[in-house]
Each structure stands twice: as structure tokens, then as C-alpha cells.
Nucleic acid binder design. Structure first.
Lengths: 144, 144
DNA sequence: TTCAGTGCAAAAACTTTGCAGGAGG
DNA sequence: CCTCCTGCAAAGTTTTTGCACTGAA
């Protein structure tokens, strides 16, 4: 999905939800598009500040939540009480390997996972929206 | 593992790590043993306060971390920027189903998961310590 | 006796909220 | 023109830290 389509999708979502279309929200979207895979709200805010943007912290937090609501971002939490965001475009369901030494986050995919999720939810009479599969340990640079 | 063994294990761990054996730490352990599956540090602190205990917040946080380090507790985070602790006794590796409506946390086990974890870490040259498998959605009371 | 552990409160880290002015529809 | 959105700062939440005193070894 290219930049233009992305803009259109966000615009459509905002209109549907009776949210106003403001330059600040699209400025946040710009930075999100350019961002690395996993970033926190505050990191993005600081990056925007450095980039001479004038948006406030509150607007960044608010806009990111809107992007989550329209399925353009996924919200993640790797256990350190910090929320990370990740673009949801062109990605299949995937999990994360988190290095406890350097904090690196590596994505992985595995075909068998969705089958297991189906099995589990049917066994437990549960209706799934999303899942997280996080494996903690040491990456290849830090394993002994 | 009964209460006495649990005490002994913690005592041994403290000695090995040159941590002092203090009544406060064992008071925290007492409350942990009696606790429900998933609790936060602050919940435990408040419970201890109500139970006329005199420990400080700092001591509770500190002691819980020690219990994590000696593998008697597992630290979890279900995406709401709050740390939960869970006893690791008599439990196989398991995942969690989290109801986004009522917040209920249901544990599940599945034999195939450990095989998949092995497959993933070998594909990615990663050395795992632990994993989290969280599925978010609606429990049987709240699915439509 | 000695230094790690404790209670307390203050600080820190991250996120949300209140307010008054400003702009989108 | 009517709100919703914004920037700012203040408040909230959860966790960590600094300090002086205490008590375990």
C-alpha cells in the first residue's frame, strides 16, 4: 500500500468516525510511515520535535490510537510497561523474539501458529481478535 | 511443593545471592503463596496493608523481583502497561486467553507449542528463556 | 560491627486529562 | 457558528530511587 492509499484510508476512517481531518493527524501518519518497525509513542513524539514538527504529545498519543482503531497500526507490549506500535501493512501474523540483553526485537512467522490458535480457541470456547507470541531470551549476538 | 519447601527454596536462593534473610521478604512470600493466579505488585502491597502488614511498597516490589529471579514467580504483561505476577509452581508452560470485555484471564496449555518454539528459535539462531502466548478476544460469556 | 534492607516519600517514566484558544465542516 | 482538536501543562499511574535508620550475619 503506497502513501496515497494510506492517506485515503485514514481520511475515510476519520470521516466515518466523525473525527476531523487535521494536518497534525496526517503529520503523525507521515512519521509513522517512515518509522522503523517498533516504536513507542514518546519516541515518535521526540522524533517529530526534532524534525521541527510542532505537534503536542497529546496529539501524538491521540493520533496513534486512531491509527490503531483503523487497523493501520498494531499496539504491542513486550513486558516493560511501555507501549510499542508497529505498522500492520503487508504483514502476516507474526511473533517476536526479544533479546533480554540488547532489547532487539526480531519478527518471526510460522505457518503452524494459526492452526494452533484455532485449536486453542475452539477448546476454550473463545472468540479471538488477535494474538501475541513473544519469546524472550538471547539473540545470536548474545547467546553464550 | 508445600509451604515449607517453598520457604527453603527462597532461603537458599537468598543465601546464594548474598541477599539477607529478612522477615519482610518472607511476609511477601506468604502473601504470594495465598494469592490468586495473576496479581500486580501494587495489588499485593495493598492486600498486605489491609492485612495489617507493615511492609513498604519498595520492599514488595523488591521482593517480587527476587522471587522472579529464583523462578518462583513469572512476570507477565498483558498489554495494559501493568506488570502481573503469577506463581510458577506445578505449572507447565502455558498461554493466556484475555477477554477484552471483562478482563478475565484464562490459562491454556497445548502440547504443540513447545515444538513450535523449538522450531522458531532454531530457525532464528536464538536462545530462549521463556515465552508468552497471549490471545486477545472475547470469552464465552461475551462473544456474540 | 557492618553493610544490605527497610520505610517513607519523592522522583521517574510513561500516558491521560483539563482548559482555553483556534480551526474544520 | 458550533464543536472537535490542539498545545500546553498539570495530573495520573505504576514503578524506582535516595536517604537515614535498623537489624541480619
Amino acid at each position: 500500500m503506497d502513501k496515497k492509499e494510506t492517506y485515503e484510508k485514514f481520511k475515510k476512517f476519520l470521516k466515518n468516525g466523525k473525527h476531523r481531518i487535521t494536518p497534525e493527524r496526517f503529520e503523525v501518519l507521515d512519521y509513522v510511515i517512515e518509522s522503523d518497525d517498533h516504536f513507542s509513542a514518546d519516541e515518535l513524539y521526540l522524533k517529530m520535535k526534532n524534525g521541527k514538527s510542532n505537534v503536542s504529545r497529546a496529539t501524538v498519543y491521540n493520533s496513534l490510537e486512531l491509527l490503531v482503531k483503523c487497523n493501520m497500526l498494531i499496539k504491542r507490549n513486550f513486558g516493560d510497561n511501555k507501549t510499542f506500535y508497529e505498522s500492520s501493512y503487508n504483514k502476516q501474523n507474526h511473533g517476536h523474539l526479544i533479546c533480554k540483553t540488547c532489547g532487539d526485537i526480531i519478527e518471526f512467522t510460522n505457518d503452524k501458529i494459526s492452526g494452533i490458535v484455532e485449536e486453542i480457541v475452539s477448546q476454550n470456547d473463545f472468540s479471538p481478535d488477535s494474538f501475541q507470541f513473544n519469546i524472550f531470551g538471547q539473540c545470536n549476538k548474545h547467546k553464550k
